[in-house]
Design a protein around this nucleic acid. Structure first.
Lengths: 337, 337
DNA sequence: TTGTATGCGTTATCAC
DNA sequence: GTGATAACGCATACAA
């Protein structure tokens, strides 16, 4: 259990080099006021002893960890790892390190993770959890640790946010579809605990249908390719006539499950079945037929979030909120011209 | 910059509750020897003041962070996020937090990350970096921070390892292919900086071909779906006759690029072109034709790594090394019966 | 049961 | 230029 016991400390370096620990500290931090001679002497013994300063003690003394807390749902979706990858890239470049806190689509867990983030003493945090509401952001704000919330519009003194414009774009797609003669009934494929982005999209989906006076369906599916595929194959085979429709799915793999099910059930895509993926990734382009999708470059979102956070930490953040437009890419899974 | 300045300390709680800070500390850590009355009093003021203990100070005092350093290549491949997800799950369950260090397929960077891990004062580390060699593991070992290395067989006093049996299984596949009448020439699709796992596979690929006295090809491709797809489409269209072959690709998306290119160039899969993916994920089952692949459940690998690490930290690790078998799943992208 | 004193490994403010 | 010394926020052995 004494795994860190044999750690070389600054004091041992000082003793071995025959100087005071203050001098060693100066050498480490590249501060002036130290003779080249003694500097070399100290640096030599540092190398000899294999000394590495304790980030812990440094952080305690300076009140600065170079540590960013990242709260994300544990599910390993491609778009989340893209986000993480973007955050990570900028963080590394700017000298920060990421501490990961994963939640499982539950508001309570997200809140408890936020508390954990506080005790972990991070310089800032990036939160991507769909379950968080306004009052939760207020809680975060009250801790006064700089935070960027992704997928929300709420801001605060120490809280900035990035949100997505999925709803409007989805509405446009649907309006255009009917206007250009689309005649299939649309089905929104709902996922349990999909988060507020999905809820928002579903809300918009229903709204625009009511506005247009069109019929629509909402169906549930499991958040797994395999299950969804099996369920739809069964449904499609049981009643091919009823299968005909335009399906709006949350993610690529779910959308792919539906189009694969259709194809394997002998239905034509997009002839009989059209499919739209809301959160498209590079896989929208890999599966066949290629998936029409709404796309947001989550890696870019991650980079932006990290940059905003750094500004927020330095009290330099001008625009506290930032909007990412989802843009529609029509591919082969829907009709188009 | 004084973002943490207004943090409530244990001392303020003690003062507000009219007790000594030692008592507060006892309450926090649920130690006995404290009257229910004072306990309640302290807990009340903790809640009132919104006190959260500083993990930093705790770690410094106890010489224990509950922090695991994870070194992975920054590339956001699905199999890596699966690994991370597995690690994360067990870590959370066991009360550890993950600090992420990303590298970019360079040995130097991996080594510098290891140094960073040391200063970050983690309780243990999990390293998944294909570029690390034996001497590097020795370096890790010298810091005596418990470490699990994934993708390597080397161990040390404080170093355990998990390795994969890709090579043998790949050789079996190739031998079986020829034995059962497979007549296509095989091409190993090489990726620059693909890491030692890829190198190992390539080595085995060549070895078994020499053993069998068969011709083979090795070609380079870019580590990106889009580029690889474009390159292969061009090549396939230019010379469809030469295109005929069995291609061994590193990952699903690369393999998918090849089979999509073949299909789109008017070639039949697996009639004219057969494709095998070395590191299969769930996407092997989603793309069409489905991809024959070697599979290892990276999430399971992650879980196991974390469990081994915990044992290592507690000096309880019996088997310092562990082997994961890659198993072959024949799907529609290769001939089979 | 509770309080006091010391140490964890640094940085930073002083004197010298 | 260099060396004592006090923080940083907490845990803990020891004393009361």
């Amino acid at each position: 259990m004494n795994n860190l016991k044999d750690r070389v400390t600054i004091y041992q370096v000082a003793q071995a080099a025959g100087v005071s620990l203050a001098t060693v500290s100066r050498v480490i931090n590249n501060q002036g006021n130290v003779t080249p001679a003694t500097r070399q002497k100290v640096e030599a013994t540092i190398k000899k002893l294999g000394y590495k300063p304790s980030g812990l003690a440094q952080a305690l003394a300076t009140n600065k960890t170079t540590n960013i807390g990242v709260i994300i749902p544990s599910a390993n979706y491609v778009y989340i790892s893209n986000l993480l990858s973007g955050i990570s890239e900028v963080a590394k470049q700017k000298g920060f390190v990421l501490t990961l806190f994963t939640t499982s689509h539950s508001r309570e867990e997200a809140l408890s993770m936020i508390e954990k983030v506080i005790t972990t003493h991070v310089d800032g945090a990036i939160v991507f959890d769909d379950e968080l509401g306004a009052e939760d952001i207020a809680t975060i704000n009250s801790y006064s640790v700089p935070t960027i919330v992704i997928g929300n519009t709420i801001t605060g003194d120490k809280v900035g946010s990035i949100h997505f414009s999925y709803g409007d774009e989805l509405k446009n797609i649907i309006r255009t579809y009917y206007k250009e003669g689309g005649d299939k009934e649309m089905t929104f494929v709902h996922v349990h605990d999909g988060g507020r982005l999905l809820t928002h999209c579903e809300h918009c989906f229903i709204e625009v249908h009511k506005e247009l006076g069109k019929e629509y369906r909402v169906t549930n599916c499991d958040d797994s390719y395999t299950h969804t595929y099996a369920d739809f194959v069964e449904a499609f085979k049981k009643d091919p006539a009823a299968a005909r429709g335009y399906y709006v799915a949350y993610r690529d793999s779910l959308a792919a499950a539906i189009e694969n099910a259709a194809t394997d059930a002998g239905l034509a895509v997009p002839g009989d079945v059209e499919v739209l993926s809301l959160v498209g990734t590079k896989y929208a382009n890999i599966v066949r037929p290629t998936l029409s999708s709404l796309q947001i470059d989550m890696s870019e979102v991650g980079k932006r979030a990290m940059l905003m956070l750094i500004d927020l930490i330095n009290n330099n953040l001008e625009e506290k909120t930032c909007r990412f437009e989802a843009h529609y890419v029509a591919r082969a899974s829907t009709r188009g011209e």
